[in-house]
Simulated assay, not measured.
Amino acid sequence: MKAWVEKGGYLNERGRRWLSALDPQEVRRILVIRQCAFGDMMAARPFLVELRRVFPRAHITLSTVSRYQYALPRDLIDEVHVLDGEGFLAEQWRSLREPGRYDVLFDLADTSRSRLLSLVTRARVKLGFPYRQVFNRLLFDVGILRSDFHYEAEILLDFLKIMGHKPQYPLEFSLPRHRPGEARHRIVYFPYAAVSRKSLSRESWAALIDQAAIRFPGYQHVLLEGNKAEESGDFLMDIAGRHANVSVQRRLDLDALAPFLAESALLVSGDTGVRNLALATHTPTLGIFYMTVPFRYWPHYEACHEAVFHRDGRVPETSDILGTQESLLSRLYSA
């Protein structure tokens, strides 16, 4: 097999030999390290779908940490390894050595724990994409470049493109899929984020939904509650009482949330896991950014996603969001 890389990646001699002799049918054990929260787990799903296509006979183990087990893609893997970060050093070391020996290791995390696991795990070949290139030479046989300016789900696929694999586009997440002709006239708003500074204030969200209900009267405007007690939609009750097309959707579990988003016309939110789930269901999204680099969470292989942000990083105003929202709805759903 040819190593499909020129100047865009790292390849040592062992990695080159492995690629040249690679027979995907002979790869039986793969370890994928992904230690991340809800949104980044969503971004890993196309990689796991395509990994199974490249290595159809492999047993795939996903390694994570105890705090990041929500939204694990159990339907796409064979086994979960949880790296123990608590307890005595002997217990943590035993957890590090637990995975055993693998044919292939992919480090999709680039954290101190993932690097340590990559170091101590025995594997014929190790692939990673560290921000600091020194770790390529220290830990990996094959390395790809990492970027803040491309959708991360696509960057992960570069691990397989180096083997000459052609991923499916639009990306396949193996989740319920949005179909524009069947979408309900429903705009969903998710006003929360794991880091509160990444989301607009409650007052800003209330003003946005209040004006959107008037500006887009043909849509039901639904505020989606989050998992935490403080992620309640009670702050919108006054506005919901004044508009027949405004309501609050109480918390949904993950199995119900994916089809709910897929059946909606649009999701409006900041940089959140829920927005990443909407991306994974191919539901149109309007992302509001002012802290996070938007390009890493903004797929361009589909025209149904838009981002509103200012070059100087200031917080977008309600008028900015409504104007972009109107343009996107017109582009997607006008007859």
Rank of each mutant, 00 (worst) to 15 (best):
E50G: 04
L51E: 04
L51S: 08
L51N: 11
L51Q: 03
L51K: 01
R52L: 06
R52D: 01
R52H: 10
R52P: 06
R53T: 00
R53F: 03
R53V: 04
R53K: 09
R53W: 01
V54K: 03
V54I: 13
V54L: 11
V54W: 05
F55I: 09
F55A: 04
F55S: 00
F55P: 08
F55V: 04
F55C: 09
P56W: 12
P56E: 07
P56H: 12
P56D: 06
P56F: 05
P56M: 01
R57C: 14
R57N: 11
R57E: 07
A58E: 01
A58R: 03
H59A: 14
H59C: 12
I60Q: 09
I60V: 14
T61V: 13
T61P: 00
T61M: 11
L62P: 05
S63N: 03
S63K: 03
S63T: 06
T64S: 06
V65G: 05
V65F: 00
V65D: 01
S66E: 08
R67H: 13
R67Y: 07
Y68H: 12
Y68I: 04
Y68P: 11
Q69W: 06
Q69M: 12
Y70G: 10
Y70V: 08
Y70K: 09
Y70L: 07
A71T: 09
A71H: 15
L72R: 10
P73Y: 05
P73K: 00
P73T: 00
R74W: 09
R74M: 15
D75I: 09
D75F: 08
D75H: 10
L76D: 05
L76E: 15
L76R: 13
L76F: 11
L76Y: 13
L76H: 11
I77G: 06
I77C: 02
I77Y: 08
D78W: 06
D78P: 05
D78V: 13
D78M: 02
D78H: 11
D78G: 05
D78L: 01
D78T: 00
E79S: 08
E79P: 09
E79G: 14
V80T: 00
V80L: 11
V80K: 02
V80H: 02
V80P: 04
V80S: 02
H81K: 09
H81S: 07
H81F: 09
H81Q: 14
V82T: 10
V82P: 03
V82I: 04
L83K: 10
D84T: 13
D84W: 07
D84L: 13
D84R: 14
G85N: 04
G85M: 03
E86A: 08
E86C: 14
E86K: 13
G87A: 12
G87W: 13
G87S: 04
F88Q: 15
F88C: 15
F88K: 14
F88Y: 15
F88D: 15
F88S: 14
L89P: 03
L89F: 10
L89G: 11
L89S: 07
